[in-house]
Amino acid sequence: MNHANVPHKTHWSRHAVFWDSFGSPLRPHREDVGHVVSHVLRETPLPVLLLMGVTPEYARTAWPQGTRMTAVDRCPEMIRSVWPADHVPTTFRVTQAEWTALPLANHAVDAVIGDGITTVLPRWEEIDTVLSEVHRVLRPGGLALMRLFVKPVDSESPDQLLKSLLCGPTLGFHSFKLRLLMALQPSLSAGVAPRDAYRWWKDLEATHPEALVRHAWTQDQRHTISFYEASPDRYWFPTEAELTRSFVKYFTVKEVIYSSYESADRCPLFVLHRKN
């Protein structure tokens, strides 16, 4: 997930420092990486890639020697702390820039890889500009592979989530955070403020401490939700249908791949072909 002009209190600077405390579904699983690599190499054996964000799982995987990658992220702390500079080829580079103005020439890349990028836009209305930029930098016929967070059509309410925490199967903490954020979003146009998730969590700690014990969440995992406390950011969780409507102007949806790990049903991989 991404993020020059990050607000001073944005939680991404803290996420960067504690990146190793996060896991799937908030970070891509090896299943996702395998799908991405196989689709890219099926199209071109020696690709030129754009990575939107600095997701290390995609940078550090076993790309063919000679592969070129440009990673673009707006958050300097994410670049400093998360980009695996010492573990990638010299043909890989990272640059700080906005996704609405990608620092690449027209038709410069064979494939674009993104992870959770539609959720972390400053405003949902920017999605068309971002997709237009992705279309611009892709070569004709190029591929965009986007693992994106989608809200179920029949999404659970906060009360339903609470009932599940108390009586349902045990849940990983990062799956819990994702479900909580989605449950708190009233509509796509409104989005959801992460600080509201923090407040809900503090109420849970005070009123149902048994839930924390039941799910055996570690202190390091639980600490990550504190980063939301004073964040001014908003997140956006569209449904799969809402995302598809956003894509249609620039891309053909070739395939939607659902992996098998916990909450993978909420973060499918969209395989998009550039419309010429």
Rank of each mutant, 00 (worst) to 15 (best):
N5C: 14
H8F: 05
K9L: 12
K9W: 03
T10N: 11
S13T: 15
H15R: 07
A16L: 09
F18Q: 15
W19G: 04
S24Q: 13
S24Y: 14
H29E: 13
R30I: 14
V36Y: 08
V40R: 05
L41Y: 03
L41R: 03
L41V: 02
L46A: 03
L46S: 00
P47R: 01
P47I: 05
L51T: 15
M52Y: 04
M52D: 13
M52H: 05
G53W: 06
V54N: 02
Y58N: 13
A59S: 12
R60D: 06
A62C: 12
W63E: 04
W63L: 04
Q65N: 15
G66D: 01
G66S: 03
M69A: 12
T70D: 06
V72P: 03
D73P: 12
P76D: 10
E77V: 02
M78R: 02
I79K: 01
R80E: 11
V82H: 02
V82D: 09
A85G: 05
T90E: 11
W99D: 09
A101N: 10
L102D: 05
A108F: 01
A108L: 08
D110S: 10
D110A: 09
D115Q: 04
D115I: 04
I117P: 08
T118F: 13
L121N: 06
P122V: 07
E125R: 10
D128G: 03
T129P: 10
L131T: 03
E133F: 02
V134Q: 01
R136S: 06
L143D: 00
R147V: 09
F149T: 13
P152S: 08
D154R: 13
D154F: 10
S155Q: 12
D159H: 13
L161G: 02
K163Y: 15
K163Q: 13
C167Y: 15
F173T: 08
F173L: 03
R179W: 05
L180H: 00
M182V: 10
M182A: 04
P186D: 08
S187P: 02
S189P: 11
A190Q: 05
A193H: 03
D196W: 13
A197F: 12
Y198C: 04
R199S: 15
W200A: 06
L204N: 09
L204S: 12
T207A: 07
P209Q: 11
L212Y: 10
W217E: 07
T218K: 04
I225P: 00
S231F: 09
R234N: 12
W236R: 05
W236D: 02
P238L: 04
T239C: 03
T239V: 03
E242Y: 00
T244S: 14
F247T: 03
F247P: 13
F247G: 01
F251N: 08
V253G: 12
V253S: 06
K254G: 02
V256Y: 01
I257A: 00
S259I: 00
Y261I: 09
E262V: 12
S263K: 01
A264F: 14
C267Y: 10
P268W: 06
H273C: 14
R274C: 10
K275P: 06
